[in-house]
Design a protein around this nucleic acid. Structure first.
Ligand code: MN
Ligand code: MN
Ligand code: ZN
Ligand code: ZN
Lengths: 155, 155
DNA sequence: CCTGAAAGTGAAAACCGTTTTCAAGAGGAG
DNA sequence: CTCCTCTTGAAAACGGTTTTCACTTTCAGG
């Protein structure tokens, strides 16, 4: 599901829930982001437009958006508690290792790989989690002038 | 790197480290496992053969084995702090959604998918994290008689 | 308008997996 | 044996997440 207010409103309404001022701020903060965010990041961003927002509500809203399928969890080197807006039903993330930008890609034809995996392991494959890393167009084009790589949490 | 005592000894020695009784117990516990383990799981398993083992040492040893490349981190639905022995240089895990068994597969030709992703996003792709889920041969063959699905942490 | 029920909220406390600290315990080299 | 480095476990500290709780908001029904 795409992460925009209208779609979220509809999905929430279907469950008898509301899009409050606070939830709206969280949705907007995640939707506006071009890189992956921690819950604390979301909190700080969202507070700009909703100063009385509480961190508790951020966690609650993120869980809600996750259930709805409006965001994707990113698997980082030290945990997978990073979040990114989902724009398509089925999509995967590509993370730029230089600047941290995250882009979604949907043209994912895994049939060949899945068949090979099935052959090798004997499993019947029903799902896949795929996340790519590399250099975004900007960082790849001017590697020397690129902004310094983001400091990774903990690592 | 394969996760067996000999290989670990060699790798540790190269760093001036030793394979102590405690580390040995941790290595054996991880190596013997057919599904993914939490650090606490490892602790409990390893304690069987080394009762005076401390949880701190388990964490330290797991980090060591991770650096060495002797284990793989698995991305679960509620975090990615699960561990699995690595048997090949480059490999991915397939997790059985019925019984939890984890198998590694190495025949992973992602060239086509990676090219498509690069075309769609403009990134130069340099790495991929792939994890599959499905039914293992045993669970797929007799879905009715399969052991009940494992209870997932938290979820 | 009231009014009651259900949804929603933030601060504070609890929780819990992980990391750090610290003093003690191996154990190999010389 | 002696020195020095590696190693260890208990306990404390840490930090992100979840729970609790008293309070507020929203809204449908009367
Ligand atoms: Mn896909
Ligand atoms: Mn691969
Ligand atoms: Zn970039
Ligand atoms: Zn199975």
């Amino acid at each position: 599901m795409a992460l925009d207010a209208d779609a979220v409103v509809a999905e929430l309404a279907a469950r008898g829930l509301r899009l409050t001022r606070q939830r709206r701020a969280v949705v907007d903060a995640v939707a506006a982001s071009r890189s992956c965010l921690s819950p604390l990041d979301v909190f700080q961003q969202a507070r700009a437009s909703c100063p009385d927002l509480g961190l508790t509500t951020v966690y609650r809203t993120l869980e809600l958006l996750d259930e709805i399928g409006a965001l994707r969890r990113i698997h980082g080197p030290s945990g997978c508690e990073r979040l990114v807006p989902a724009s398509a039903e089925h999509g995967h993330s590509v993370v730029c290792s230089a600047c941290g930008r995250v882009t979604e890609f949907t043209d994912c034809d895994m049939a060949v790989v899945l068949a090979a995996a099935s052959r090798e392991t004997g499993y019947r494959i029903t799902g896949h989690f795929l996340q790519l890393s590399g250099l975004c167009a900007e960082c790849g084009a001017a590697p020397d002038r690129g902004r310094p790589a983001r400091r990774r949490a903990k690592a």
